[in-house]
Simulated scan of single mutants.
Amino acid sequence: MLYLLGSAAPPVLSFPVVVEQAQARGWGVVVGLTPTAASWLEPELPLLAELTGYPVKSRFRRPGEPDLLPPADAVLVAPATLNTINSIALGITPSWVAGFAAEAIGRRIPMAVMPCTNEALTAHPQMGRSVETLRESGVRVLLGEGGFVPNPPGTGNPAAYPWAVALDAVAGA
């Protein structure tokens, strides 16, 4: 079971196609979105639930609310914004996505994170520290050649986001 967790960056709009690609590779898929990403995909949320057979998660469960999701075998956090990467690395859990990913590290669930940040955000000093923290924790961070290569601000191309690389990384985990 692959947990596909996405932040609010333009490639998240491809989630219906990415779910189908993951399923074609043999994965059952659970989708989790940050609140902003969920708002961007609001018209597609019923489709994502239908494709996966599970509700799309974008908030923490309330006390006493049952967990309807199967256990994760692997986690892919993509696209991952600077905020999400820093939150996971620092153990700050403002969203269900960051909380699940942070807990997955402690549970030793294989995880890959593929950023979607421009060169300016990637150059922020905390980004490098967070990437190093995640890598030291056993997370495969797909940043740079062979993963996501940041672009100058305002020049991103969501259609060029390397989803196949990300799916390959979790298959190898």
Rank of each mutant, 00 (worst) to 15 (best):
M1V: 14
Y3D: 08
S7Y: 00
A9L: 09
P10S: 13
L13K: 11
V17T: 14
A22L: 09
Q23D: 12
A24I: 04
A24V: 06
W27L: 02
W27Q: 04
V29W: 04
V30E: 03
V31W: 04
L33C: 09
P35Q: 04
A37M: 11
S39C: 08
L41T: 04
P43A: 11
L47K: 15
L48R: 04
A49S: 15
G53A: 08
G53V: 07
Y54H: 15
V56N: 03
S58F: 10
S58M: 11
S58G: 05
R61E: 12
R61Y: 12
P63I: 06
D67W: 15
P70R: 11
P71W: 11
A72I: 06
A74P: 01
A74G: 13
A78D: 11
A78P: 07
N83Y: 04
T84S: 13
T84E: 11
W96V: 10
V97A: 02
A104F: 01
A104W: 00
A104S: 15
A112S: 15
V113P: 01
V113K: 00
P115T: 04
P115C: 07
T117N: 13
N118R: 02
N118M: 07
L121Q: 10
T122L: 10
Q126C: 05
R135F: 15
R135H: 06
V141G: 00
L143V: 03
L143F: 13
G147K: 01
V149G: 09
N151F: 10
T155F: 03
T155A: 14
N157I: 10
N157E: 13
P158H: 13
Y161N: 01
Y161C: 04
A164G: 13
V165H: 02
